[in-house]
Design a protein around this nucleic acid. Sequence first.
DNA 1: GCGATTCCATACGGGCGAGTATGGATTGCG
DNA 2: CGCAATCCATACTCGCCCGTATGGAATCGC
Lengths: 192, 192
Amino acid sequence: MNVRQKPERTRLSAEDWEDAALNLIAEQGVGALAVEALARQLGVTKGSFYWHFRTREALLQAALERWEQYGEREIISQIEAIPDPRERLPELFRRVAHELHPHRVYAALLKALDHPLVVPVMARVSKRRTEFLHTAYSEAGLEAEEALNRARLTYAAYVGFLQLNFTLGLPRLSHEEFDAYVEHMIATLIPA
Amino acid sequence: MNVRQKPERTRLSAEDWEDAALNLIAEQGVGALAVEALARQLGVTKGSFYWHFRTREALLQAALERWEQYGEREIISQIEAIPDPRERLPELFRRVAHELHPHRVYAALLKALDHPLVVPVMARVSKRRTEFLHTAYSEAGLEAEEALNRARLTYAAYVGFLQLNFTLGLPRLSHEEFDAYVEHMIATLIPA
DNA sequence: GCGATTCCATACGGGCGAGTATGGATTGCG
DNA sequence: CGCAATCCATACTCGCCCGTATGGAATCGC
């Protein structure tokens, strides 16, 4: 903990602040996003911050936009590259299940749904992902109505799982238990 | 808005404060729980508050305990009263789906998982409910391992749905769409 | 009805963190 | 090299809200 990536990074850019903000959010939540704290962590003072950003909210906004931009790109394209549509969903499940850092941020944002700024971002992201699932289920053979509801159900299960196991450290699943759970999801949610 | 239940309730008890706190939490989230605001809303001043409670956190704690106590009691017992185990889960789904106020509080607490005080409460509640689902699935015919994972999946789907549709006002389902979604859940998650 | 207890109002102290002002250091550029 | 733009430090102000201190009003017990 408390390690600076580069001990002396004599000059900072707005992007540096945004990245640092996202990291801090991932570790301590949106509520902990304070400019003096961030400044300390970056080895500078407020003076620097208020040169790059007009306000604290502006940083949050920028950081969220940044996150929304460079969020899922790769995974989606990787999945779409799989030729057989029926193999895509299981592969998606397993791949997503073994991610970590993206989930941290998403979970942190999930428990910061108080804040008005994060709501629209999360809404957009969730919408896009649900739509992706929707078409995936359609291509896997479900008919329209059913595919949509299954997509909703799947994404809800994903979001809920993050809350229960990430934020609340609820069942504390072992590696094997977790894998078994994922396989159970696949068996239950994906048509044979 | 801003209606006092009883215009003049000349004297207040600790329970009154706790109820008011829960209502405020349900409407505006845990973050909005400020003693002066609450006092205004109750038509008194801080002086009153600090006679009943040692601190703001103490109120939150008390309110959460109160909520945890009188939370689900009735529904669970009603469900357990259903003779045929295979009818319990569908009935549970449909009943829960048509609640409202309890979900408000739960959703508000869900997006306040930042706060250290709410985490253990939510953990306990979620654990109990998942266990309830676990036995229900067992009684409905699933074997041990599968029943547990199905319970986790079901509760995760519930939690996620609250987040997506309550907090984010995401798909804005119509009445019919919502019912269709619930039936889809039943068809997908509950063994035939 | 009268003192003691319970409940509440008013006024103040103080911390925490956002935002401002201003001058100094560093870097790019002619 | 030297000037301008860029980046940062220091030292404030200010608002918000928790908590405290103390006196006054309402209510209960005898």
